[in-house]
Amino acid sequence: MSINQIDQSAKFGSVTFPFPIFTASGCAANGKELSQFFKLSDIGAVVTKSVMNNPRSGRATPRMAETASGMLNAIGLQGPGIDSFLENDLPWLYEQGARTIVSIAGESVEEFAALARKVRQAPGVSAIEVNISCPNVENRGLVFACDPVSARNVIEAVKRSIGNTLPIIAKLSPDVTDISIIAREVHAAGADAVAMINTLLGMVIDTKKMRPLLANKTGGLSGPAIRPVAVRAIYQVHAALPQLPILGMGGVMSGEDAFELILAGASGVSVGTASFNDPSAAPRIQQELAALIEQRGFNSVAEAVGYAHRD
């Protein structure tokens, strides 16, 4: 049997993607580099690096530390700013035939709303990811995604900005007591889907220098080390909100890993840190996933979503 016989489509709000594997924001830049290794239109969508209103230099180095089956990063959202992104990166992605989910990040509710307005007016956007794992400068630097009220305020503001023109995907942090509470809030505020999990906050101390290794001291932990956390979080949110589509991510290195997230309740899966190890990871994982889903007797990816929840 050919591996492409099953229906691989993945639905997020009003948009259906032909394939279930996506890049993860911040692990694919804006597509150009990975396009040297595979055709960007061969996967579900490219999720671009979270872009802010103004250009950002990002943080000082060291920005990265390898850890057992993972890595810490503290890049600091280095990027060109929304105007340059919309003028240069987005049209390029469109020319490649890539479906694009634009990830936005802000330091205030108003910045998120302004970014969403600009993205709405741009051609060639399939959906908008709202990266609420940023510090809220108006609220003592508290991360939006870690506070139900702040998270809701951002999504409400984005919804007011763009209405139903584009599906809104809220990106959630696992660094909370109960992630399903945050998911419920953002869903009620108008999110059509959630992307989860963002990195977990971690720290490495350099035992020679006897100081934190990263210039920023703390960084986000990613890679297979966090996969069981992702599986648990996705399982919990799918159990609480079975109708809410989940874009799953967290340490997916193989088709089997992606399948695990789908069984937990993800409708599609993003590949992040794996691309650093293997620039062809996204299309490889997609092929492995399709073969595995067919092997398990499903006719479509959608049939397998949340299958681990059955009695």
Binding site: C27, A28, P62, M71, N73, P279
Partner: peptide
């Protein structure tokens, strides 16, 4: 020689 995670330009860690 800066420490790199990917070598291909997607991780943004090897900046100076």
């Amino acid at each position: 020689e800066e420490s790199m995670a990917c070598g291909i330009g997607i991780c943004m860690t090897c900046v100076l």
